[in-house]
Nucleic acid binder design. Structure first.
Lengths: 146, 146
DNA sequence: TATTGTTATACTCTATAACTATA
DNA sequence: TATAGTTATAGAGTATAACAATA
């Protein structure tokens, strides 16, 4: 049995494991901010605009009820604000507060610090290739959140 | 705000998303075999030996009760067999059946087919760099299952 | 007493569907 | 009727702790 005949040597398996690992490490680092990883996705989207809740759900690739729950938590934390629209009172714009902007900035910094730690053992060329490849793959496969 | 100042541009975020995506696609492909991704990790370890259940848990990086549950399912499927050891009757060796070996082989083939589909848009040099980098990262960070 | 494995329980994350209010 | 959002519920996956059998 050659090394390539093992399940665990597949890219699919390894990217799954590394993805879980990276998410777990990120969770540890943002926990002191009162955030979990999924909250950071929300804050990221809200930095770019003030979508309605359903728009947020499709941008993040999660269900509506998950968005409601995350916004409840972020609102309690004081990071976001729901604003009822006057033209159509069913809709609510979601916007960042000043605290939310600060948290988004901090979470972004933590993510990039984690990147440095995760990729510390690779040389610059490898790192550059990896980043390019991941942008291409995210686009290729239509992954949400990016 | 530059592209590098966004949370979603971080490697940590992107590898998390791609890992989830790869795992979901793999789940779809092994479902017809009656397997879920975590079962394939078990089968992979069992190809290399016949560990006791606790050894299996640490090899996979999951809790003991999860191993019990997975083995129940794999045993019902006829893929593995628990063999009580005579020297120490608390322990049970876990071994693959003939069906289990066949399933392990099929799952491995599906994983590598998925690799080809996932990485189809990358050129050979990028793919090689990616594979090398992932082996290095898995080792560096002590990820289980490899 | 310590260890192997099992069971009970609980927690997180997620989706679906029933519901409320507005349109 | 249809849509935005909410709530209720259920399922997958995980871990911890209490437990049984054996050492």
């Amino acid at each position: 049995m050659s090394a390539e005949d093992t399940f665990t040597s597949s890219f699919a398996f390894q990217v799954g494991k590394l993805g879980q690992f990276a998410t777990d490490r990120f969770a540890e680092r943002v926990a002191p901010l009162g955030l979990r990883p999924r909250h950071c996705g929300v804050l990221g989207v809200l930095r770019a605009g003030q979508p309605a809740q359903l728009d947020l759900a499709s941008a993040l690739g999660v269900s509506n009820s998950v968005v409601v729950n995350m916004l409840d938590e972020l609102e309690e934390l004081g990071a976001v604000r729901r604003v009822r629209e006057t033209e159509d009172r069913r809709r609510q714009r979601v916007e960042l507060t000043a605290l939310g902007r600060t948290l988004a900035r901090k979470a972004t910094r933590l993510a990039h610090e984690l990147d440095r730690d995760l990729l510390a053992s690779l040389d610059d060329a490898q790192t550059a290739t990896l980043r390019d490849a991941f942008r291409a793959l995210a686009k290729e496969h239509g992954l949400p959140g990016g």
